[in-house]
Structures are given as structure tokens and as C-alpha cells.
């Protein structure tokens, strides 16, 4: 137990990076996913095929491969990212693709009659999105989004391959130095606590949106 307290500061330092990657990725990928989902939900003949191709590419290849490609592959064509930038770039694009599909499903679940009723009330397209469809979409997609958000916490550990100092890397360093598995137990406990907090928050959000049916 004392040993776990001894290595706690370095694990918490790694947790900071894990949370940083988590929040910045969410901040970029959720709005990006929403933007991408709008042409996906329509019959836009120009944008839709490109976005479908992007989603296929992002969902069809492992995130680990994408991360390695962004950090080690893109410099070959002159696009150079530092470690943190590469992680945020790869994670944001990958998660935006998943979120775009979730939003698309959410928009598909909205009765066309809702849009028609709003059109008859002379609302503009942006107003219909903001006040009518999006609130209903958000309510419908919270459970699916919650799963992805929880996955993101765990996926963030993939940044170790490009040498970013996250929680798992902090644990690995202590493991190699002290030849003990206890650091990984500490890492596991911190991940469980983070996901427990997230699950609680998501449940509250879901309940909060249940004020109507």
C-alpha cells in the first residue's frame, strides 16, 4: 500500500495527460462529428460520398495504426506533428467519424413530421436544427455516445506508442524500474475511478433528459 502511495504522484501526472487527451479530443470530435453528420443525413451528392469514405477509412482501420501513421508516416510527405499534436489529430478524426455515425442515426430517428411542423411555423433551417431536431437527437444518442466516451478514456492509453507520458506509460515506467506489477494495479484503479465518475455523470445526463418522452 505504501508503495502505491509512493508512485501515486507519477501516476497522477500521467493521469493529467490522459485527461488532457480525453477532453481535448471530445472538444474537437463532438462538434466535428455533428458537422459531418449533417451531409450524411441528407442526399448531398457531392459531400456525402466523401464523408462516407472518410468514415469507412476511420472505422475500418485500427486507431493504433492511424496514430502511428500520423506521427511516423505523415512526416514522409512533409506534414510533421509533435507527439501531443499527432495524438490529438488522430484521436479527433477517429472519434469524429464514430460520432458522425451516431449523430446520423440520431437524425434518422427523428420523425419527419417534426421538421414539417417547424417549416409550417416558418422556422429557418438553422432554427429547426437548434430548437427542434438537435435537442431530440441528443436525447436519443446519449447512451451510444456514452459508450464511445468511455471507450475514449481507455483508448487514450494508445498514445504510449508515440511516447506521450500518459497514465499507462507512468505505470509501465514504474513497473520496469521496480520490477513489480503493483503499478499496473494502481493504473487499473485510476482507470476504474475515472470511468466510474463518467458513468455516474452520463447517467445523470440521461436522467436529466428524461423529463419528456
Amino acid at each position: 500500500m505504501n508503495y502505491l502511495f509512493e508512485i501515486l504522484p507519477s501516476l497522477l501526472e500521467g493521469t493529467k495527460m490522459t485527461l488532457n487527451v480525453f477532453f481535448v479530443t471530445l472538444l474537437i470530435s463532438i462538434p466535428l462529428g455533428l458537422i459531418l453528420s449533417i451531409p450524411l443525413s441528407t442526399n448531398n451528392k457531392i459531400l456525402k460520398p466523401f464523408i462516407e469514405g472518410f468514415v469507412w477509412l476511420m472505422r475500418g482501420t485500427p486507431l493504433l495504426l492511424q496514430l502511428i501513421f500520423v506521427f511516423y508516416g505523415l512526416p514522409l510527405i512533409g506534414i510533421v506533428f509533435e507527439r501531443y499534436g499527432a495524438a490529438i489529430f488522430a484521436f479527433s478524426l477517429n472519434y469524429a467519424a464514430y460520432f458522425a455515425e451516431i449523430f446520423r442515426g440520431g437524425f434518422g430517428s427523428i420523425d419527419q413530421g417534426q421538421v414539417e411542423a417547424a417549416e409550417m411555423l416558418q422556422m429557418k433551417k438553422a432554427q429547426i436544427l437548434r430548437y427542434i431536431t438537435l435537442p431530440q437527437v441528443i436525447k436519443n444518442i446519449v447512451p451510444a455516445m456514452g459508450n464511445e466516451v468511455i471507450n475514449l478514456v481507455k483508448d487514450s492509453s494508445l498514445v504510449y506508442v508515440i511516447g506521450l507520458g500518459d497514465l499507462l506509460r507512468a505505470g509501465n515506467i514504474a513497473l520496469s524500474r521496480d520490477v513489480s506489477l503493483l503499478p499496473l494495479v494502481g493504473v487499473g484503479i485510476i482507470y476504474l475511478l475515472l470511468i466510474g465518475l463518467l458513468t455516474f455523470g452520463l447517467k445523470r445526463l440521461e436522467n436529466g433528459l428524461n423529463y419528456y418522452r
Binding site: 414539417e116 411542423a117 417549416e119 429557418k124
Partner: peptide
């Protein structure tokens, strides 16, 4: 189209289409 008729025509839909939120 519906959004260009300046509110001169309104519809009470069969399923009402009230905004549930």
C-alpha cells in the same frame, strides 16, 4: 414551399407533431 408562404397557411397534422421537448 412551406417556409415561403409567410405563415399564411397553417397545418394541424394528423399526429399533431407537437415538439415533445
Amino acid at each position: 414551399v412551406a417556409t415561403q408562404i409567410d405563415g399564411k397557411v397553417a397545418v394541424v397534422f394528423q399526429d399533431f407533431n407537437l415538439f415533445p421537448q
